[in-house]
Design a binder for these strands. Structure first.
Length: 493
RNA sequence: GGUUCCGUGGCCGAGUGGCUAGGCAGUGCUCUGCAAAAGCAUCUACAUCAGUUCGAAUCUGAUCGGAACCUCCA
């Protein structure tokens, strides 16, 4: 637990690793931008949420009491800020000819199922935008009262120009609005409601056809997208909280706007540590629905996709992601996924071996090396690939003990078991996949009979029968693995 | 065009001034009736050019190539 003082987090705001000191230890506030539930989450989204799942898990492991808030955006995510900007969910509802709230429910369910498959721990609070309309209206009022927003024709816009006179709009993304102004001047002359190109809607007037809409001091409308995160993070974590996470692509404008809104409303920069996860790419290009290069999780698992050679389990994919740093892009490929599949297997069988290790008087190996190095890796901005590398070094040790080249003491073994259990299962969130095909006992019993028959043939040196059984099973995708005095089997499609 | 970032061995990916991760594949070996599986060992490297330095993949500059954001996106 002494390591809990040594966690460094890369803070996107200052572009440097900083020692993590919670505002009110042992409590930690963690906010992560959740999905807009208008379509299926794809693998790139999963990667992002996985990054913060590990952050949450590790903070918890370190003994912090983490309140983890991840929102569901169920209204207000406009296609754009122009006058005819449409709500994503409304649009989808019209396409599918169902209620917007049915869309929300359908894709919220899908999101939770998916995230569950990848063994992500549910957040402490999962608030929705529609559940916080009143708070959003109140925040808009505070912003207006402080002079940082204006109303035009039933919509309210954040006054970026005014804000940047007093504060630094663009400090997170490194943007300078003066410079941007020159390039974007043309798009200003469209007779829009906005006074300034960088202004963004915090309340948007609703058309008569719109189904999801609310009354407000400015008329019937919907809240702006950026606003919900400001409101919900403030409500559940306070005006100032520890960590805010999200994908790189949210840095601008979304997170920049969040900062501006909070400062404009309450005079405080809300977030102490900003964390941004990088993108999943396919052939070097960001995975996105519009490019037709995204995988849905079930396609990945079944392998039913033109870019996939075969199916991969959710755990393989989880491990694959963890073998890369969250701040780097990771490029999808069949080869890399296959490598991850085997690597994960090696790690897991190492743990199995660990649990069956015989102990000796003394240890000839230094388990503290493995423990401290893998801990240091995670303390270094959640460096999971490095931690995994050290865990593999440990597997080498474990195997060496197993073949009696090295020895381990009782207390060392206990410690090592505990460490692997914590790191692999609790922090990295990997699970040993269900062995063999099912919980059903029949296949297991049948296989036992077959294997016994084959072993009898082997004892009688009847190799042709033994090989025949092996070959026939292989055709059914059942693989026999002979060990010294026993045989195991594995079903792999 | 602006902002930010990247280019590491056959592949994936750490490292960020000297001690040259790890996984997968390859090769050799052990085990084995054979094969597979498993284990052990091991090879191939830092985009290019110039500079700083006793010393650079690591710092600086230039060049080439790639990406993300600047418009909805995790």
């Amino acid at each position: 637990m002494s390591e809990s003082n040594n966690l460094y987090i890369y803070n996107s705001l200052r572009k440097t690793k900083e020692l993590f000191k919670p505002l009110n230890p042992p409590f930690v506030g963690l906010y992560v931008c959740g999905p807009t539930v208008y379509s299926d989450v794809h693998l790139g989204n999963v990667r992002s949420f996985l990054t913060f799942d590990v952050v949450y898990r590790y903070l918890t492991y370190l003994g912090y009491n983490v309140r983890y808030v991840r929102n569901i955006t169920d209204v207000g995510h406009l296609l754009n800020d122009s006058d005819d900007g449409d709500d994503k969910i409304e649009k989808r509802a019209r396409l599918e000819k169902i209620e917007p709230m049915e869309i929300v429910q359908k894709y919220t369910n899908g999101f939770r199922d998916t995230v569950n498959q990848f063994n992500l721990i549910p957040p402490s609070i999962e608030p929705t935008a529609t559940g916080h309309i009143i708070e959003q209206i109140e925040m808009i009022e505070r912003i207006i009262n402080n002079g940082f927003a204006y109303e035009v024709n039933g919509s309210v816009y954040f006054d970026v120009k005014k804000y940047s006179e007093k504060y630094n709009y663009g400090e997170l993304s490194g943007r300078k609005i003066e410079e941007q102004l020159e390039q974007t001047r043309e798009s200003l002359e469209g007779g829009q409601e906005k006074r300034f190109f960088a202004d963004f809607a915090i309340w948007k007037k609703a058309s008569t056809e719109t189904i999801m809409k609310w009354d407000s001091p400015w008329g019937i409308g919907v809240p702006g997208w950026h606003l919900e995160c400001s409101v919900m993070s403030t409500k559940y974590l306070g005006q100032k909280f520890d960590i805010h996470g999200g994908g790189m692509d949210l840095k601008f404008p979304h997170h920049e706007c969040e900062i501006a809104q909070s400062v404009a409303a309450d005079g405080k920069a809300p977030v102490r540590y900003w964390m941004h996860g990088n993108m999943l790419t396919v052939n070097g290009t960001k995975m996105s629905k519009s490019l037709n290069n995204s995988f849905l999780p079930h396609e990945l698992i079944s392998g039913d996709h033109p870019l996939l050679e075969k199916g991969y389990t959710a755990m393989t994919v989880r491990f694959f992601f963890l073998q890369a740093n969250y701040k780097s892009t990771v490029d999808f490929s069949n080869e890399a996924l296959k490598a991850a599949e085997k690597g994960l297997k090696r790690l897991m069988s190492g743990i199995e071996t660990l649990n069956q290790l015989e102990t000796s008087e003394n240890s000839t190996i230094d388990i503290n090396l493995i423990i401290s190095k893998s801990t240091q890796s995670l303390n270094d901005d959640f460096n999971t690939p490095m931690a995994i590398a050290h865990l593999f070094d440990g597997v080498k040790m474990i195997n060496s003990i197993n073949v009696e080249k090295d020895t381990i003491s009782v207390s060392d073994l206990e410690q090592l078991k505990k460490h692997y259990s914590s790191f692999v299962f609790d922090i990295l969130g990997l699970t040993s996949e269900e062995n063999n095909s099912s919980d059903d006992e029949l296949p297991n019993d049948l296989m036992e009979i077959i294997i016994n028959l084959r072993n009898q043939s082997k004892e009688n040196k009847d190799w042709s029968t033994a090989d025949l059984i092996r070959d026939k099973l292989k055709k059914l995708s059942i693989y026999i693995k002979d060990a010294k005095d026993s045989s195991t089997w594995e079903y792999e499609k």
